[in-house]
């Protein structure tokens, strides 16, 4: 599949923003001042909104994007739009109350955490629902999206927040655990993607043409000598060229470096900047990971080309 930069930026950035919203909603301790409340909420909402806005750049008609809110009963993409807006609205109310009274309303917090998680889930389901792309068509896809959003949110919250321990554990350990869970899910996802082919439906050039019963089928001539929308969008192969190298980059910058920084933080009294550095590194790794998510995925229509 063609890796559109706007969509990669959207899923990574809004994932991190929603992860932070999730941590805020659960009551991750933050500096007490109204200014801090404003800035933290702005960052969480801003990352999410920046992602959402960038996702409209790949649309043919961004000015009609509002129409995408109408079909939530059947469409995961529509559900994503609706739940993202609900999350941001609720976050706005939560942040206002927090700034005015200094109090973080617990039940409202739980609600924004819930909606943040739902939004990440709906994003992942846009891809996971597609039977035509076997790599994506798996429960591991939402698992990865949720776990990466949580890991990014936790690192950011650890860097911005005042807590040194939560639920009896140092925040560096909690953030490391989130990272390990996320990359374990991703390794499982990669392992599945490496072996799945089209075996989930049994599709082949034989079933695609219906000619498989007659013998071995191969494409003799394309319909046209040049590229078309389908080949550019779904039979995209260029991105796979550096797949192995990009995976190493993703694992080093997204997993090894942030983990090392978390351990370093443990040893040095958990200074905030180490967590923020780890967050930046994770984001770089996730851009590589998300590029591969699109570039390596094979679409059923490639059976015709």
């Amino acid at each position: 599949m063609h890796p559109a930069v706007s969509v990669i930026f959207f899923t990574v950035t809004s994932g991190a923003g929603l992860g932070l919203i999730f941590c805020l909603g659960l009551g991750w301790p933050m500096p007490a001042s109204p200014l801090a409340a404003f800035l933290v909420s702005l960052l969480a909402g801003g990352l999410t909104a920046a992602g959402l806005i960038s996702s409209t750049f790949h649309l043919g008609h961004p000015e009609r994007a509002w129409r995408a809110l109408s079909q939530w009963r059947s469409s995961w993409l529509s559900r994503e739009g609706v739940s993202a807006i609900l999350t941001l609205t609720l976050l706005g109310i939560y942040a206002l109350v927090w700034m005015m009274t200094g109090e973080r309303v617990a039940w409202l917090g739980l609600l924004i955490s819930l909606f943040a998680a739902i939004t990440v889930f709906t994003t992942a389901m846009i891809y996971a629902q597609l039977k035509t792309v076997p790599d994506w068509h798996s429960a591991l896809t939402p698992a990865c999206y949720l776990a990466f959003a949580l890991a990014a949110g936790a690192l950011l919250a650890a860097g911005l927040g005042t807590a040194t321990t939560l639920i009896g554990m140092p925040v560096a350990i909690l953030a490391s655990a989130a990272l390990i869970v996320a990359w374990t899910a991703k390794l499982l996802w990669w392992n599945r993607a490496g072996t799945i082919g089209f075996s989930h439906t049994g599709s082949s050039i034989g079933t695609a043409t219906g000619l498989g019963g007659l013998g071995a089928v191969r494409l003799l001539e394309r319909p046209h000598s040049g590229e078309n929308y389908l080949t550019r969008e779904m039979v995209h192969k260029i991105g796979r060229k550096h797949a192995a190298r990009l995976r190493r980059i993703a694992l080093v910058t997204g997993c090894a470096v942030p983990l090392a920084l978390c351990f370093l933080a443990m040893a040095t009294g958990q200074p905030a900047f180490l967590f923020l550095l780890a967050f930046a590194s994770l984001m770089a790794g996730l851009f590589a990971e998300r590029w591969l998510f699109f570039a390596e995925a094979r679409h059923a229509v490639s059976l015709y080309y």
Binding site: L77, I126, Q129, T132, Y229, L230, E233
Partner: peptide, 25 residues
Amino acid sequence: KCIGCGLCAWACPYGAREMDPVENV
């Protein structure tokens, strides 16, 4: 009503839908 997101073309296994390069629908 089409916003040109392209998701329908992704959902089709047959490659029956193509984005218009001029009208972006």
